[in-house]
């Protein structure tokens, strides 16, 4: 099929204004948007700039706005869009460096601010040298372990568009992953950051983050759970185990 691809082009400091370049391509409906970009860059316009790495929906490099929605270019097929007019733009809320490449530093700054790593200063148990966790406790934060830091959620969030100081959904998801980990003792430090005026309270439950997440993380629910801990001071580590029990477990 023949399609038209309109791509946002801009080099701040060089171009006076952003523009949209249009390319006409013959494609297979099962091709991915990333394939179209590779095609354009390889055969039509080598100056086009975009990020990509694994190309299989794991690295989170190629988040962009595809027909107005934040998506990973490597996970969207042409046929998914149900149109022959495709508009590709950079994710919004972060500064454009070139074309579809944005400056991710403010995003990662917010991510680092929630201390996204296990904090436990207790001595290791001498016998097993392992901090045990039940399957239900592991299930409690399973959903939020899936984040690949693509920024699709944070840059789909209207409060973040208006105010870049807002910690944003991705950072809250990664805080959730450790706050609800029964082995972690750093919840109070994270909650201190998240209770700031630009912390978790800036979320207005728009649900754009949940809709944008390529990993289908229930982001708005995770944010609500963090708010609940801040309101009650109580963390419940017991989750619901999904799927069959491990073979041989007694």
């Amino acid at each position: 099929m023949q399609i038209t691809v309109k791509i946002y082009r801009h080099i701040p400091g060089v171009d006076t204004q952003p523009r949209y370049d249009e390319y006409t391509l013959d494609v297979d409906p099962k091709e991915r948007i990333l394939d179209l970009l590779e095609n354009i860059k390889g055969f039509k316009d080598g100056t086009l700039a975009f990020r990509r790495s694994c190309a299989h929906g794991v690295c989170g490099s190629d988040a962009m706005r595809i027909n107005g929605r934040n998506r990973l270019a490597c996970k969207v097929l042409v046929q998914d869009l149900d149109t022959d007019q495709i508009v590709i733009e950079p994710i919004i809320g972060l500064d454009v460096i070139k074309d579809l490449i944005v400056d991710m530093d403010p995003f990662f700054e917010q991510y680092r601010s929630v201390l996204p790593y296990l904090i436990n200063d207790d001595p290791l148990p001498a016998d097993g040298k392992e901090r045990l966790q039940s399957q239900e406790q592991r299930a409690r934060f399973d959903d939020t372990t899936k984040c690949i830091l693509c920024a699709a959620c944070t840059t789909a969030c209207p409060p973040f568009w208006a105010n870049r100081k807002y910690v944003g959904p991705a950072a809250i998801v990664n805080a959730h992953r450790f706050i609800f980990d029964s082995r972690d003792h750093g919840a109070e430090q994270r909650l201190s950051r998240l209770s700031e005026p630009d912390g978790v309270w800036r979320c207005r439950t728009v649900f754009n983050c949940t809709e944008a997440c390529p990993r289908e993380i229930k982001i708005t629910q995770a944010i609500a759970e963090v708010k609940e801990v801040l309101a009650s001071g109580k963390i419940n580590y017991k989750g619901v185990q999904i799927g069959p029990e491990r073979v041989g477990s007694g």
């Binding site: 016998d127 045990l132 406790q137 801040l230 109580k234």
Partner: peptide, 25 residues
């Protein structure tokens, strides 16, 4: 000697008392 045990299912944490939290409640 400390032994490996599964942590309890709930924990009480100190949360900052501030204006934004009160406004949300």
């Amino acid at each position: 000697m400390e032994t490996s045990t599964i942590a309890p299912n709930t924990r009480q944490v100190r949360v900052p008392k501030n204006y934004e939290t009160t406004a949300w409640k």
